[in-house]
Nucleic acid binder design. Sequence first.
DNA 1: TTGGCTAATATGTCTAGACATAATGCCTGT
DNA 2: ACAGGCATTATGTCTAGACATATTAGCCAA
Lengths: 228, 228
Amino acid sequence: MTHGWEDIRADVLRRIRSREWPPGGLIPGEETLAAEFGVARATVNRALTALAEAGVIERKKRAGTRVAELPVRRARLEIPVIRLDVLGRGLAYDFKLLADRMGPAPVPVTARLGLPEATPMRYLETLHLAGGRPFVHEARWLNPAALQGATPDFATISANEWLVTEVSLVSGDIAFTAEDASPREAEVLGVAPGAALLIAERTTHGTLGPITWVKLAHAPGHRVSMTF
Amino acid sequence: MTHGWEDIRADVLRRIRSREWPPGGLIPGEETLAAEFGVARATVNRALTALAEAGVIERKKRAGTRVAELPVRRARLEIPVIRLDVLGRGLAYDFKLLADRMGPAPVPVTARLGLPEATPMRYLETLHLAGGRPFVHEARWLNPAALQGATPDFATISANEWLVTEVSLVSGDIAFTAEDASPREAEVLGVAPGAALLIAERTTHGTLGPITWVKLAHAPGHRVSMTF
DNA sequence: TTGGCTAATATGTCTAGACATAATGCCTGT
DNA sequence: ACAGGCATTATGTCTAGACATATTAGCCAA
């Protein structure tokens, strides 16, 4: 009965779920568990580290390991390139570049990126198509100062895809909201004005500073799903 | 110098970002890196394992480690109990139980949970309030067969919170969509019918089978944000 | 009582070595 | 040429021991 670290993780999880080790309670130390399972302490440590990353337990030096009071559920979202998202649904992908111009970025954009007001940025508007039908409307402000080297022709490769593969992103955040379709979005997506749209707003930062702010307006019925 | 596994992770990440190791390319083996950094192989392994979990590299036995072609961005969503979400925004929390009855669950619900059609389930409708104003409307179908022991008075503790703390959840999924407010939702949330609402639909499964399906309709303006 | 120092302790990390496992690709025999 | 089998190799995991680090409890002094 050799125990791998995954077996130990499973067994600890079982005891937590069965309330043998109740929420908020201390669980035995690594040394104790190692003796009980008949493995080295490092193996127990591997298992408990994984559980801590999953939010099931909380570990503190000297204080020991305790079961999380309110097990925060963590769901992982995998953000694909839009092209692959569409192809993954078994539909043909295409996109149209609707606008590409330089101009002073609006205040909400510069504010979120931490740039001075009215910083000159590049505005790109793209409509992504799935099976010939509107899929996502993308409105993007790009900070040229954060890009080294030449940018490609965004009518040939979508900004969405080029950024993911060619630019060194460091960090970012994504927020989902629901909004009534603006007249422009309604027209481009081919829906009634005021229809409920799922909006994803993303900011990304790179080594050379803030890179881009993008608002993705999804066609009605779009689902973003995650597992936990 | 580089000594800890986090330093090594950072350095490998830097080389990937600088294109020293380009996307799709093989990176040196653990033994080589260990010698280069002057650490044990296990330390390099720790660093590379972390990067693989983050989706930056892909590792295969015998084939080696290569930089991911399309670095799938993974964002982590922490799903809090609604009460804590509200309190975290600095607002007072309250909730009202609007409905609590048994009845045959609708087909979409049983289908998603993998239960026979018209399984008798408990329907709970709750309005969560933040600072006295409607925050989230919760429509929940609960499978009594998957719950062992007594259920509490859901007028005293919200189902949302009780389930998280008292039931052994095993797995589940969550999906976000945007929907026009139904007449019922509009009335309860105090918004115009047809207003765009951010919807979160969750199913959860436990050791005794499917536990619950819930639809959360958020008040306009609600943002669900994640970092990556 | 209060503040700060100290020792004890549980987790965090590292090492060196070993064996396990899964792909790969070569090397057979047909 | 081809299929199957086998050796090679890089990652995956484990061990036993050591030292590092954070945190707490207790003690002592002002």
